[in-house]
Design a binder for these strands. Sequence first.
DNA 1: CGTCAAATTGAAAATTATCAACGAGAGTGG
DNA 2: CCACTCTCGTTGATAATTTTCAATTTGACG
Lengths: 244, 244
Amino acid sequence: MSGSCFAERLGDLVSITPAEQDALARLEERERPVRRGAAIQRENDRVGELFILRKGVMMTSMLLDDGSRQILRFLFPGDMMGLSSLAYREAPETITALSDSIVCPFDRSTLSGILAAHPRLGALMMVYSQIERAALTDRLAALGRTSAKARVAAVLIEMRNRLRMLDKSINATFTLGLTQEEIGDATGLTAVHVNRMLRQIEEDGLIARANGHITFTNERALMRAANYVDRYEGLDLSWLPAAR
Amino acid sequence: MSGSCFAERLGDLVSITPAEQDALARLEERERPVRRGAAIQRENDRVGELFILRKGVMMTSMLLDDGSRQILRFLFPGDMMGLSSLAYREAPETITALSDSIVCPFDRSTLSGILAAHPRLGALMMVYSQIERAALTDRLAALGRTSAKARVAAVLIEMRNRLRMLDKSINATFTLGLTQEEIGDATGLTAVHVNRMLRQIEEDGLIARANGHITFTNERALMRAANYVDRYEGLDLSWLPAAR
DNA sequence: CGTCAAATTGAAAATTATCAACGAGAGTGG
DNA sequence: CCACTCTCGTTGATAATTTTCAATTTGACG
């Protein structure tokens, strides 16, 4: 277990020096398993640790006071979670496991120590949070301005693409791993309507479904239907300071 | 013109040393006026500078390919704009002036120089972007899971509160400075429906309207109707490293 | 006074939610 | 191996919300 998950992720952006590798490995010294459905951070609870997701799929969500839930973001191995702890006394969002997962908890002081010693990693983290921000704004625009069908299609594409970043063997067929209720909470729809939209997308010939598996049968058209933009492309990191 | 706008903003969070003040002032050495309606950054254009808003109100937005627009965020003096330039070659969002404004452009290297010299400012910027992120997720949850009326109410409250941060004399009455079309683009509604929701909110006795002015006649109830959370409260910055 | 953007209103249509019911499959305890 | 229970997915009918379209009206300003 030499490389850290998060370092691998940053390594997709720019090459990480051995010294930086070592520093980042300190974030993943401890491991904690999380069962499907369990939360590692709950909205309004006093914040504690930050986490790196090592294995599994998780999500962040907010509860509204009429009891409905909005899923904000899906999380995959190598993602850093709970960054809001850097600013708030109480967590603004809940972090829950969508599948059995393993997380690596660390605390703010560990992070700030690393940033002090390796300024370039601080810059990389800013880049990382800008990418995350762009993904959030895409979702925002989707909720505000696209049809139910487009929003459901966007979730399918997002999940496929992020799973594919981890496992290049995944192509047109993948396991979604979300209930229709969860898709609804991510897209601002009811589970019933998600069901109808999936059926329609299937009838349009864009996907096929079997058990929990989705197959993209017309990826081009699906992307178009979803207004999809890949925010992990088009990066420009030429301005980063030199590694120390 | 001793203090910088951005330093004042960060100064609301924690006290800024004179050395840090001087460093931040370098971000605001140049000034550029922007007329209402003009854009300083356009979606898909090659990114250039970052900016600090010195005067006026601006917004960021995205255009969808059916021609509709989603407003992502309103910007006020002291806000940093165009941070996405840190990650992307092309801008993911458009930045436009809602009123005649003055911006201070600077470039990435200026910023990275400052961060290298003043690690605590880097940490503060992470805090700053977490606050912004929380505001984005609140808006996301509002779009996904709240009624049209609640979303319109939320925009009213957000504008009043942010204007009030700049000018403490503002209380229940303020100038909104947005067209109903702009409110619609922020809330994912049509201008027509925004009009009806404003009327309803007025009929419910929560606000009064006259010319461009809004008066909160029942602030408590308005907050409740909007599900409002103030993300500039409840901060915990005790972990920040010492100033250099 | 004329013009133009913005606000307002009504009526009809489209989208999405709600309610209610049923079916399929996975575990569980007997 | 058989009920039994649960969650999840599916479907139909109906209701609520929001959009669209088409006029007006209002107010600011040259």
